[in-house]
């Protein structure tokens, strides 16, 4: 973990960021899962963004060689167990999402945050389509409300990116190790 990457800071004028440690990535993913598992109810449940997908896509587009399809798949398995959905349902959706993020990471980083939102929205919709397709195959009906959640997820892209960047920004007194 020595040099800050050249490609993460290609927007916003070569900002210097701390390298993301494995612990930081893992805890952010865990926190996202915990947010997913909050007891959402009623209208909030329909509008619930998929925090895990959001954080996964962030890491896939910023650290594509550290967080990839494999990690996305494992996160999906955890989400499957927690949701009591079929094994592999979330895993399949997250794998597709991570693939999209890893393949398009350079393209996404070309844009500023607002334009990035429009870039990640199709990825969320694609992952949600995969999830809904599996749901349709098993339960025989499509739940359209899930797609509201992906739009909300895309809308949360800017706050999330700003938050994670601010956490990776070096403090004045801390030295690089």
């Amino acid at each position: 973990m020595s040099a800050p990457s050249s490609n993460t800071a290609s927007y916003q004028g070569q900002e210097f960021l701390l390298p993301a440690s494995n612990l930081f990535i893992a805890s952010s993913l865990l926190l996202a899962l915990l947010l997913n598992w909050l007891p959402w109810q009623g209208i909030w449940l329909a509008m619930r963004p998929d925090f895990a997908a959001l954080v996964l896509l962030y890491w896939c587009t910023h650290k594509p060689y550290r967080v990839g399809i494999g990690i996305a798949w494992m996160v999906g398995i955890l989400a499957d167990v927690a949701d009591a959905s079929l094994f592999g349902q979330h895993a399949l959706a997250y794998s597709v999402l991570a693939f999209g993020g890893v393949v398009l990471y350079r393209r996404v980083q070309m844009f500023d945050l607002r334009q990035q939102t429009l870039q990640v929205l199709p990825l969320f919709l694609l992952a949600q389509t995969v999830y809904a397709a599996v749901h349709w195959q098993i339960n025989g009906h499509v739940v359209w409300e899930y797609f509201i959640g992906s739009v909300v997820s895309a809308a949360l892209w800017i706050p999330l990116a700003l938050l994670l960047q601010s956490l990776r920004r070096p403090r004045a007194d801390s030295d690089l190790s």
């Binding site: 399809i69 494999g70 798949w73 999906g76 079929l86 592999g88 349902q89 895993a91 399949l92 693939f99």
Partner: peptide, 15 residues
């Protein structure tokens, strides 16, 4: 692409 195919197949098998 190969990774995606592997994990998609794994997911479908699990499903």
């Amino acid at each position: 692409g190969a990774r995606l195919v592997f994990f998609v197949l794994l997911s479908i098998l699990l499903l």
